[in-house]
Amino acid sequence: MGIRYEDVTDGVRRIHLFGRLDTVGSEEIAGKLASLAESAKRGVVVYLSGVTFLSSMGIRALVSAAKALQARGGRLVLHVDGSDVVVRTLEATGVDELIPVFDDEDEAERAAMTSV
Protein backbone atom coordinates (compact mmCIF):
# COMPACT_ATOMS: atom_id res chain seq x y z
CA MET A 1 0.00 0.00 0.00
CA GLY A 2 1.07 3.58 -0.40
CA ILE A 3 0.08 7.20 -0.10
CA ARG A 4 1.17 10.29 -1.98
CA TYR A 5 -0.25 13.75 -2.39
CA GLU A 6 -0.14 16.87 -4.49
CA ASP A 7 -1.46 20.37 -3.88
CA VAL A 8 -3.20 22.05 -6.76
CA THR A 9 -3.40 25.79 -7.22
CA ASP A 10 -7.00 26.34 -6.14
CA GLY A 11 -6.51 25.06 -2.61
CA VAL A 12 -7.35 21.44 -3.21
CA ARG A 13 -5.07 18.70 -1.96
CA ARG A 14 -5.16 15.43 -3.83
CA ILE A 15 -4.31 12.39 -1.74
CA HIS A 16 -3.80 9.16 -3.64
CA LEU A 17 -4.06 5.86 -1.81
CA PHE A 18 -2.77 2.65 -3.32
CA GLY A 19 -2.85 -1.07 -2.77
CA ARG A 20 -4.26 -3.21 -0.04
CA LEU A 21 -5.75 -1.21 2.82
CA ASP A 22 -6.45 -4.19 5.02
CA THR A 23 -6.25 -3.76 8.78
CA VAL A 24 -2.46 -3.85 8.81
CA GLY A 25 -2.07 -1.65 5.75
CA SER A 26 -4.59 0.90 6.98
CA GLU A 27 -2.79 1.26 10.30
CA GLU A 28 0.38 1.98 8.39
CA ILE A 29 -1.08 4.87 6.37
CA ALA A 30 -3.57 6.26 8.93
CA GLY A 31 -1.16 8.68 10.57
CA LYS A 32 0.08 10.06 7.26
CA LEU A 33 -3.47 10.42 5.94
CA ALA A 34 -4.52 12.30 9.08
CA SER A 35 -1.60 14.69 8.94
CA LEU A 36 -2.08 15.37 5.22
CA ALA A 37 -5.79 16.07 5.71
CA GLU A 38 -5.23 18.26 8.76
CA SER A 39 -2.61 20.37 7.01
CA ALA A 40 -4.61 20.90 3.83
CA LYS A 41 -5.49 24.51 3.04
CA ARG A 42 -9.13 23.94 2.23
CA GLY A 43 -10.43 20.85 0.48
CA VAL A 44 -9.16 17.31 0.04
CA VAL A 45 -9.94 14.72 -2.60
CA VAL A 46 -8.90 11.21 -1.61
CA TYR A 47 -8.41 9.09 -4.71
CA LEU A 48 -9.27 5.45 -4.10
CA SER A 49 -8.90 4.23 -7.68
CA GLY A 50 -5.63 2.49 -6.81
CA VAL A 51 -7.05 0.72 -3.78
CA THR A 52 -7.62 -3.01 -4.19
CA PHE A 53 -8.93 -3.80 -0.70
CA LEU A 54 -10.56 -1.50 1.84
CA SER A 55 -11.03 -2.63 5.43
CA SER A 56 -13.08 -1.07 8.18
CA MET A 57 -9.80 0.26 9.59
CA GLY A 58 -9.28 2.08 6.30
CA ILE A 59 -12.80 3.45 6.51
CA ARG A 60 -12.10 4.68 10.05
CA ALA A 61 -9.00 6.50 8.81
CA LEU A 62 -11.05 8.20 6.08
CA VAL A 63 -13.85 9.20 8.48
CA SER A 64 -11.37 10.54 11.03
CA ALA A 65 -9.63 12.63 8.39
CA ALA A 66 -12.94 13.95 7.07
CA LYS A 67 -14.13 14.89 10.54
CA ALA A 68 -10.89 16.68 11.39
CA LEU A 69 -11.00 18.65 8.17
CA GLN A 70 -14.66 19.51 8.61
CA ALA A 71 -13.95 20.85 12.11
CA ARG A 72 -11.62 23.37 10.44
CA GLY A 73 -14.23 24.32 7.85
CA GLY A 74 -12.77 22.16 5.09
CA ARG A 75 -14.26 19.32 3.13
CA LEU A 76 -12.99 15.87 2.23
CA VAL A 77 -14.51 13.95 -0.65
CA LEU A 78 -13.71 10.59 -2.21
CA HIS A 79 -13.01 9.66 -5.81
CA VAL A 80 -13.62 6.08 -6.90
CA ASP A 81 -13.00 4.58 -10.28
CA GLY A 82 -15.38 1.73 -10.73
CA SER A 83 -13.85 -0.61 -8.16
CA ASP A 84 -16.81 -2.73 -7.14
CA VAL A 85 -15.23 -3.88 -3.93
CA VAL A 86 -14.32 -0.39 -2.74
CA VAL A 87 -17.77 0.95 -3.60
CA ARG A 88 -19.39 -1.99 -1.85
CA THR A 89 -17.34 -1.36 1.28
CA LEU A 90 -18.32 2.31 1.32
CA GLU A 91 -21.97 1.36 0.91
CA ALA A 92 -21.86 -1.46 3.48
CA THR A 93 -20.58 0.87 6.16
CA GLY A 94 -22.83 3.78 5.17
CA VAL A 95 -19.81 5.99 4.65
CA ASP A 96 -21.00 6.91 1.18
CA GLU A 97 -23.83 8.80 2.94
CA LEU A 98 -21.40 10.72 5.16
CA ILE A 99 -18.55 11.52 2.81
CA PRO A 100 -19.40 12.57 -0.76
CA VAL A 101 -18.26 10.02 -3.35
CA PHE A 102 -17.62 10.88 -7.00
CA ASP A 103 -16.50 8.98 -10.06
CA ASP A 104 -15.68 12.18 -11.94
CA GLU A 105 -12.45 13.93 -10.99
CA ASP A 106 -13.61 17.45 -11.86
CA GLU A 107 -16.81 17.06 -9.87
CA ALA A 108 -14.86 15.72 -6.93
CA GLU A 109 -12.49 18.67 -6.91
CA ARG A 110 -15.31 21.19 -7.26
CA ALA A 111 -17.11 19.53 -4.34
CA ALA A 112 -13.96 19.65 -2.22
CA MET A 113 -13.88 23.43 -2.70
CA THR A 114 -17.45 23.82 -1.46
CA SER A 115 -17.74 25.26 2.04
CA VAL A 116 -19.22 23.00 4.69
Binding site: S56, V63, S64, R88, A92, T93, L98
Partner: peptide, 16 residues
Protein backbone atom coordinates in the same frame (compact mmCIF):
# COMPACT_ATOMS: atom_id res chain seq x y z
CA UNK B 1 -20.29 13.17 9.58
CA UNK B 2 -20.04 15.16 12.80
CA UNK B 3 -22.10 12.52 14.62
CA UNK B 4 -20.29 9.60 13.05
CA UNK B 5 -18.61 7.20 15.44
CA UNK B 6 -15.95 4.74 14.43
CA UNK B 7 -17.33 1.51 15.90
CA UNK B 8 -19.32 -1.31 14.36
CA UNK B 9 -17.99 -0.85 10.87
CA UNK B 10 -16.30 -4.24 10.76
CA UNK B 11 -19.49 -6.08 11.69
CA UNK B 12 -21.38 -4.19 9.00
CA UNK B 13 -18.81 -5.32 6.47
CA UNK B 14 -18.84 -8.96 7.59
CA UNK B 15 -22.61 -9.07 7.22
CA UNK B 16 -22.58 -7.31 3.89
Amino acid sequence: LAEAGLGGLGLAMIRS
